[in-house]
Structure formats: structure tokens, C-alpha cells
């Protein structure tokens, strides 16, 4: 119950920040919107537009109207195009969800066997390879790798039709890239946690009972590793949102990223506010959900971080 209250409170804080900050700052979306509509920026036109957007009410009433709209699903009109924000976001959302969600799913599934293989023999081949891989992922910027991969796969090897192909052809490479970038740190965390579990007395007991190192890890280190993975997945989700945005642009995917960039350029606050609130909701839900699962699995705090 307190967790739920806390989540709602966080979202309320986010809505306040998202609503109030742009409204207080200089910069006039009305002028930009008028240019977009090829209208002269006369005082009458600006006043008419502000009336259309119902901006002459006080900030508090605007906020109240906005929040009730947000909760009830009426997200308002885009300041740039005049279309409903939901219609702007709707067709782009599946692309972003496919790339981001698919990427993290791939990483979460693959990091367990890879991390296990690396922990099985510290300083062995698997350990060295995954370590090299994680250093490479830390230093090589995702957008650079994305450009290179796009060039190799579509221009050099002609394996994928990145710009004109079907959705699967277009999504495959970005999804893989996001997945690989998340996989690198997660694999190291799983590996470190398996190794840390190897230092525990209960594992020595398991070895004394006659289990092999691999069997012992598999049977007795599973739960702490799952907990550490759960703890690591939540910050990874934070990366996924930004990483997906960058990769989408590199592959010219018509996802949310393009819409957000256009909206920043035209100060389309109504789209940006909904986008930021969407991201905030996702993050709060992920964090609260992970915390809930964690407290169910193990009431003690996690000890074996990366």
C-alpha cells in the first residue's frame, strides 16, 4: 500500500515538474505554431491561438484540466500539427516498444547462460570474452555501432532492407543492437553474482556433499542471482529508453524518437508532456514492480551487487 502511494506521489511530482517548468520559461510555442500554419504573428493571431489552446486561464486551472485529461485518456492536441496527441503517438509506439522491449527481453534471456558460463571458470575463455564485450559496449557509442551495422548489413552484405523492407527487416537490427548493449552489463552482473555466491559457506557445503562446481552453482546460487538480475534490470530499463531513441534515429525508424525530436524543435509541449509522463509512468511502474517482487522473494536487502 505504501509502495502504491509512493508511486502515485512520484507521478504527481513528475506531472508538476513537466507541466510547470515549460510554462514558466521563456520561448513562445504560439509564434512557432503560427509559422507552421503560415500565418502572420500578429497580436490578434497570437491571442486567437491562445484562446484556442485555452491558455488565458490561470496556471492552476490549466494544470487541473491537463491532469484530468491525462488520466482520462484525453491527451489534448499537438501544438504543431493540431492533431490529437494520441493519434501522433499511436502509430509510432509499436516500433519503439518492439525495439526497446524486444531488446531487453533478449538481454534478460541471454545474460543468464552467458554469465553462468563466465562464472563457471573465472579467467577462462567465456569470462575473458564477456569481459571484453562489456568493455567494448561501455566505450563504443551505440550510435556509432548503429551506423556501422546499418552500413555493413544493408550496403555491404545486402542482407537486410533497412529502409524499404517490411517491419521485421527494419526492426531486427536495431532490436539486436539494443539487446546486445543491455546484455553486456547484465552478463557481468550475473557472472559477478555467481562468483560472489561461490564465496559463500553454503556453496562450500554443497561441494563437500559431492556436487560439482557447475551443479552447486546451478542449484544453490540461483536465487541470489535472480535477485541481483532483478535489481540490475531496473536501471537497465532507464538506459533502454534513451538507447532506443538513439538507435531509432540511426536506423531512421519512424518511432517515438523522431516525434520527440520534432516536438523539441517546435516546442510542442503537449506532445512532450505526454511523452515524458509516459516514460515516468513506465519507470515508476518498473521500479515499484521490481521492489515488490524483490521483497516477496527475499525480505533481506540485496548484498551481491555488481
Amino acid at each position: 500500500m505504501t509502495a502504491l502511494l509512493r508511486a502515485v506521489f512520484l507521478l504527481w511530482l513528475a506531472s508538476l515538474a513537466v507541466f510547470v517548468l515549460p510554462a514558466l520559461l521563456p520561448g513562445n510555442p504560439a509564434l512557432l505554431a503560427l509559422t507552421e500554419r503560415n500565418q502572420a504573428a500578429t497580436p490578434e493571431n497570437v491571442a486567437a491561438l491562445k484562446a484556442e489552446w485555452r491558455m488565458e486561464d490561470g496556471l492552476a486551472r490549466q494544470y487541473a484540466r491537463w491532469v484530468t485529461g491525462l488520466v482520462s485518456g484525453d491527451w489534448g492536441l499537438s501544438l504543431r500539427s493540431g492533431r490529437p496527441v494520441a493519434d501522433e503517438i499511436g502509430p509510432r509506439l509499436p516500433w519503439s516498444i518492439a525495439i526497446g522491449g524486444g531488446g531487453i527481453l533478449l538481454a534478460a534471456l541471454l545474460c543468464l547462460p552467458l554469465g553462468f558460463a563466465a562464472a563457471r571458470r573465472p579467467h577462462g575463455i567465456a569470462d575473458r570474452l564477456t569481459r571484453l564485450f562489456s568493455i567494448a559496449a561501455q566505450t563504443a557509442p551505440s550510435f556509432l555501432v548503429a551506423i556501422l551495422a546499418a552500413w555493413l548489413f544493408s550496403a555491404q552484405w545486402r542482407l537486410l532492407d533497412l529502409h524499404t523492407g517490411g517491419p521485421i527487416q527494419r526492426v531486427a537490427l536495431p532490436l539486436l543492437l539494443v539487446g546486445i548493449y543491455s546484455l553486456a552489463p547484465l552478463t557481468r552482473i550475473v557472472r559477478n553474482c555467481f562468483v560472489a555466491a561461490g564465496e559463500q559457506a553454503y556453496l562450500r557445503t554443497a561441494l563437500a556433499k559431492g556436487l560439482g562446481p557447475g551443479q552447486a552453482l546451478h542449484r544453490h546460487a540461483g536465487r541470489p542471482v535472480m535477485l541481483a538480475l532483478l535489481a540490475a534490470l531496473t536501471p537497465q530499463m532507464t538506459w533502454i529508453v534513451g538507447g532506443t531513441a538513439v538507435v531509432e534515429v540511426a536506423f531512421a525508424i519512424p518511432g517515438l524518437s523522431q516525434l520527440v525530436i520534432e516536438s523539441v524543435a517546435t516546442r510542442d509541449y503537449s506532445v512532450l508532456r505526454v511523452y515524458v509522463m509516459g516514460v515516468a509512468t513506465l519507470m515508476v511502474v518498473v521500479h515499484s514492480g521490481a521492489e515488490l517482487i524483490r521483497s516477496r522473494l527475499d525480505p533481506r536487502p540485496v548484498a551481491c551487487a555488481a
Binding site: A14, T234, G242, V264, Y275, V276
Partner: peptide, 19 residues
């Protein structure tokens, strides 16, 4: 908490949109 859980890029985009 809020600043910590929001993606850095999203916060930066919001600030850039405003300023």
C-alpha cells in the same frame, strides 16, 4: 528519486525543449 529513475536523455530533452 524521480530525477534518478528518469532516463538522462529524457530529462536533457525536456530541459532543451524549455531552454
Amino acid at each position: 528519486d524521480l530525477a534518478a529513475i528518469m532516463p538522462e536523455l529524457v530529462i536533457a530533452i525536456l530541459v532543451a525543449a524549455a531552454l
